[in-house]
Design a protein around this nucleic acid. Sequence first.
RNA 1: GCCGGGAUGGCCCAACGGUAAGGCGGCAGCCUGCUAAGCUGUUUUCCCGAAAGGGAUGUCUGGGUUCGAUUCCCAGUCUCGGCGCCA
Length: 426
Amino acid sequence: MLDIKFVRENIGVVKKNLEKRRDPAIIKLLEDVLKKDEHWRKLKIKVDSLKQKRNEISLEISKLKKEKKDASAKIKEAADIPKEIAQIEFEMGELEKQIRDGLMRTPNMLHDSVPYGKDDTENVEITTFGKKPKFDFEPKSHVDLVELHDWVDLTRAAKISGARWYFLKGELALLEMAIVKYAVDFMSKRGYTLVVPPFMMNRKAYEGVTSMADFEDVLYKIEGEDLYAIATSEHPNTAMYMDEVFDEKQLPIKMIGYSTNFRKEAGAHGKDMKGIFRVHQFNKVEQLIICKPEDSWKFHEELLQNGKDFFESLGISCHVINICTGDIGIVAAKKYDIEAWMPVQNTYREVVSCSNCTSYQAVRLNMRYQKGEKREHVHTLNSTCVATSRALVAIMENFQQKDGSVKVPDVLVPYMNGVKVIRKKR
RNA sequence: GCCGGGAUGGCCCAACGGUAAGGCGGCAGCCUGCUAAGCUGUUUUCCCGAAAGGGAUGUCUGGGUUCGAUUCCCAGUCUCGGCGCCA
C-alpha cells in the first residue's frame, strides 16, 4: 500500500508512475482517494474542535464538582456534543475504509528500470547461464518419467484430495529432501537465518502482504476460523514484524523461510494439468530481506545472484528476465524471474521470482525503523531460493538418461547418501 | 476445553468514574575536570501551521453506559498458573 501522506505530497510523480500501468482506472481511483482524504481532513478539524470543547466543559464540571458546586448547567451544555461527534466520526470511519480500500488497490510505484510492456510476452531477457543438455535419444517429459518410476501418484491423490494434488514417493521424495537441505546449507553459508513459520495466518496479517485478489484466487481459507493456509513462507515471515519499530542496528534482517505452500491455482484451469509443475501444494525455501530503503536495490541484486548461483550449482541452464509493467502485479516495484530450461517442453519455465516490494508491504504492515528522531518504513524483498516441485521437474528433464534413470546433480549427491543415479526400485 | 491471575509508553510499574504518576533506557541541551554524577527538556499517532506553536488521540482489541472511562458493563484476543486432553 502507498502511504497516504506520500500520495498527498507527490501526486504528480505518483500519477506519472501509474501511467506506465496502462490502466487509466487506477489514476481515477487515486484521484477519488485524494478527494476523500481532503474531505476526511476537513471533518478531522471539525471533530477535533468539538472534542476540545467537550474536554474544556468536562474539566469545568470536574472543578465544580470538586468544589461541591452545582454543575448541572454545564452538563446540560455538553449533553449534545457526543452525538455530534459520533455522527462525524461515523462519516470519517466510512471515508477511512474507502480511502484504505482505494490505496489497497493502488499498485506500488515502479522502478525506472522496469520495462514497459503489455503482458508476459514483453518481459525482457537479461542474461542466460548454464549449458542446455543435448540428448542422443528422445528425452521424456517429467510426466512420463514419474510414471515410469512410480515416483508420483496423481490418481490416488485425486481420489482423496482432488486434481493437482499428489503423493511424492521413493527416490524422488528423498531427492526433494536433499534439495531442501542443500538449499538451507547454501543460504546459511551466505548469512541467512532459517525461519520455519506457522503454515496458517489470520486475515489481518494476510492483508498486509498480498493483494486482495489473492484471497479469492490463491489462498485456502479454513472454514469457521480466521485462518488461511500460507501460499509462501514469505507471507508469515514478513508479517511477523507487523506493527514493530526496528532499531537501525537490527537491519538488514536476512532470512530464509522454509514451508509447505498451498495455492488454489484458481486462474489456471487447464494449464499445466499434467505432472507436478503446477500443484496445490509444494515446499519451498524462500529468501527474505528487511532493510533500510537506501539499501533495497543493492539487496535486490543480491537475492537474484543467490538464486542464479543456486541453480547454476545444480547445473541447470536458465535465463533471467526483467518482468514488464504489464505482468509485474501490484506489490513489487521490480521483479526478476529466473526460468529454467525444460528440454522436453523446449522452453524456459519459471523457477524463481525475485521482488523488491520497497515499502509497499511495510506501509500496510506498519513496519518501521527508528531513524534518528524519525520513524521511516522499511523495505521488504523476497525471492525464491528453490521450490521443490519445479526443481524436481527441471532436474528430471535435464538429467535424464536413455533408460529413464536420472542423474543426481553433483552437489546433491552428499545429501542423497552418495546415491548418484535414481531409478525405479525393483 | 474448564477454573482463576494478568495485559498501561522502548522497558518496569502506579492511578475512590474527574482527564495517565513515578522509575529505567534512548535522544537533545546545560552544567561540571575526572572512568562519573547532576540538572532541564524530550521520548504514541493524527490534524492545523512556513515555523514557533496549538489541538486531538493514546492504558490488549471491538462495542456499550457517561458531560467525562485505565477505572463500570458486554463480547473477543493473547498470556501466566491449576485441571483435563494429547503427537
